[in-house]
Each structure stands twice: as C-alpha cells, then as structure tokens.
Amino acid sequence: MNIPITNSIRHGRRYRQQGMVSTLIALIVLVVSLLAAMALMRSVDTSNTIAGSLTFRQSVLQEAERAYVDAQQKITFTQPTSDADNAPLGYYAEPQPATARSAGDVPNVLVNAVSGSIGSVTPLNSTDNSVTYVVERLCPTSGAATVTACIVPGASLLGATSSNQTSDNLTPFDNGAYAAFRLTVRVNGPKGTTAYVQTILR
C-alpha cells in the first residue's frame, strides 16, 4: 500500500522555515539587546566621567585658594623685595615666557614643572593633588614699579593699560605706584589630570 508523502514533505519544509525564522528573530533580539547593554554601559561611563570631572574642578578651585594663601604667607609683595625675582618661591618681578592657552598665558616654568623655579603647596592626604604655582608682577621688567609701565589693579589687562589708583586693599610701593600680580596655579590630580587657574592679586 503506497502512502502519499507529499503533505509530510510540505509540512517538514514549513516547520524548518518557521524554525529558521524563529532563530533569525532570536539572533536579531540578541544583537539589539547587546547593543542596548553597550549603550547603557557607555552612558554610565560618561556619567561617571562627568561626575569625576566636576568633582576635580571643585577640588581645583579649593586648591587654588590654598595656593593663594600659601603665596601670601611666603612672598613679600612690597618694595624693595618685590623688585627682584625669587625663583625658589615661584615669584618673578616680571612676566615669564608663557605658553598660550585658552585660559590664559601659563608660564613655561610652571608648564614644565621646573624644579626650584615654582612655588609648591603641601599636599592634602584627602585629595592627593599636587599643587604648584607661579606669581608674576605685571611690570615689563624687574626693578622699581612705575605707574606708567606696570599694570595696576583695576586696569584693563587686555589693553595693557594702567592707571594710578589709591585704595586700602592695594599693594603700595615706596614711590606711590601700584602694581598687580598674577597668580597661576597648576593642580595635578591622582589620575593624571591637570588643571590651571589664574587670578590677579591686588
């Protein structure tokens, strides 16, 4: 007795086709899931990076304040002491050769961390940041400051103009002139990050 097998073959082919479609759909779902997982991991990494950057930025500002206090305690900003360089303390009576950066001109001695030519702040165990700085008097050359040559507090730094101003919180000189000082702080973080902060001292 002959049994027709045409229907059985058709059903077998249909089942195999359905199985292939199901496998293909499963592979597509798996790939999409992997891509979603990778995107999630990247998002988490980005969030952690941003959070770490913000934390480091806040830490940099705090370290800059510490450098400011340290410079005020170690460096004499009145004449005649301020008329000459004091490299071991990171003080210079005139602007130093600098590397142009978006945040301002950073003295090369600070960029290159030249030993014996920059000031340093005792590191805190809580941050492990390395803090160094340079203070520059904004006069074209060393020697006695003059109102006509030096940049004074309140003057336009971009135009390099100067004006004679009198105020209790300015740094006085023997000849009645006033000069501004620029503090540049470098902070090296524990993960190889580096940041610079500049401010004008009066």
Rank of each mutant, 00 (worst) to 15 (best):
V147L: 08
V131S: 03
P172G: 06
A93H: 02
N112E: 11
M38R: 14
S156C: 02
G192A: 10
L183E: 00
T184C: 04
D128C: 09
L183C: 01
P4Q: 12
Y133M: 05
V197T: 09
T132W: 03
A37T: 08
S167C: 14
G154M: 02
V197E: 03
M41H: 12
S115T: 09
V187Q: 06
Y133P: 03
V185A: 03
T132P: 02
S162H: 05
I25S: 12
V135A: 02
D174P: 00
P97K: 09
Y178P: 00
L183Y: 01
T55C: 06
R57N: 15
L89P: 02
P107F: 07
P80R: 04
R66G: 09
A177S: 15
G176D: 01
L201A: 01
S163K: 12
R202Y: 10
R182T: 00
D45N: 14
G189V: 07
N112K: 09
E136T: 08
Q18K: 11
V131W: 02
D45I: 13
N2L: 15
E136H: 04
Y15H: 10
I28T: 12
A180R: 02
S33P: 06
P88W: 09
S117R: 07
Q72F: 04
S163A: 15
N129E: 08
L170F: 15
D70Q: 15
A84F: 12
V109P: 00
P80S: 11
A100D: 13
N86C: 05
V135D: 01
V106A: 03
D83I: 01
Q62K: 14
T199G: 05
T78L: 13
V60L: 10
I28H: 07
L30G: 13
T78R: 13
V147H: 02
S59Q: 15
G116T: 01
G19I: 10
L170A: 09
S53L: 13
A160G: 02
L61M: 14
G52E: 14
S53C: 09
E94M: 14
Q73C: 07
V197N: 03
R16I: 15
G119F: 03
N169R: 08
A155K: 03
C150F: 00
A26R: 11
A180D: 01
T141F: 06
C150V: 00
S33E: 08
L158T: 10
R42E: 13
G154R: 01
V44H: 13
P95Q: 06
A93Q: 04
N86D: 14
A71N: 04
A67C: 06
V131R: 02
S8E: 14
Y133F: 11
V21R: 09
V187R: 06
V111M: 09
A113G: 03
A179P: 00
I5F: 11
L157D: 01
L35V: 15
Y15L: 15
V21W: 10
N188V: 14
